[in-house]
């Protein structure tokens, strides 16, 4: 069961419209290593975890990733607020406008829609956890690419927070994997 709290995990308060960054941020909204993919991946994999630690960790990280989807969505929403059609077209979002207007839609920056094939679930907990470690590293790298593309502190602050969470998640998945290998569970 899920409960909603009417607040973000980390505040988003972007003062300057930036349609290019909004477009690039869709990598983490609807791309293969997006927060959406991460949350759904862990939520599906948790049923294969062999003990209580794994079931708890995948549930709790999945839950946090849901909060990260909301942060990315808040950023895209604020970055595109009040944008004209002309501005959207100039930023390469004309295709997005034609199908979704100013609405949010989980696709990657090139407009490729999110697909469930991003959700790697093998039913083998070691294979799954190791793919999660790799996914966290790819998400960290994506955040670094996004941080490379802006100097707006209002954008950098939440990106830096989200990047750091991938660092921690990677470490926790690695500890879980090592624990299972050592204990030969």
């Amino acid at each position: 069961m899920w409960k909603y709290e009417k607040k973000l995990e980390y505040p988003v308060n972007i003062r300057k419209k930036d349609l290019k960054m909004a477009k690039y941020l869709m990598a983490q909204y609807g791309g293969p290593d997006s927060e959406l993919a991460a949350s759904l991946r862990y939520l599906n994999q948790r049923y294969s975890m062999p003990d209580d630690r794994g079931k708890a960790l995948l549930t709790d990280i999945a839950n946090e990733e849901l909060a990260h989807i909301e942060i990315i969505a808040a950023m895209i929403s604020q970055l595109t607020k009040g944008a004209s059609i002309d501005e959207l077209e100039k930023a390469g979002l004309g295709g997005h406008y034609s199908m979704h207007d100013h609405g949010l839609f989980p696709a990657n920056p090139n407009g490729v829609p999110f697909t469930s094939s991003y959700i790697e679930t093998s039913g083998d907990y070691i294979a799954d956890i190791e793919s999660d470690m790799a996914a966290e590293q790819r998400a960290r790298a994506t955040y670094e690419h996004l941080m490379d593309m802006t100097d707006d502190i209002d954008i950098l602050a939440p990106l830096s927070f989200l990047r750091q969470r991938e660092v921690v998640h990677y470490q926790r998945f690695k500890e879980l994997r090592n624990y299972y290998l050592e204990k030969k569970i």
Binding site: E144, I153, L156, S160, V167, V168
Partner: peptide, 11 residues
């Protein structure tokens, strides 16, 4: 576990 990127101090 903390490591930074681009920003040299936390915001």
């Amino acid at each position: 576990l903390y490591n930074t990127y681009k920003l040299n101090k936390p915001v």
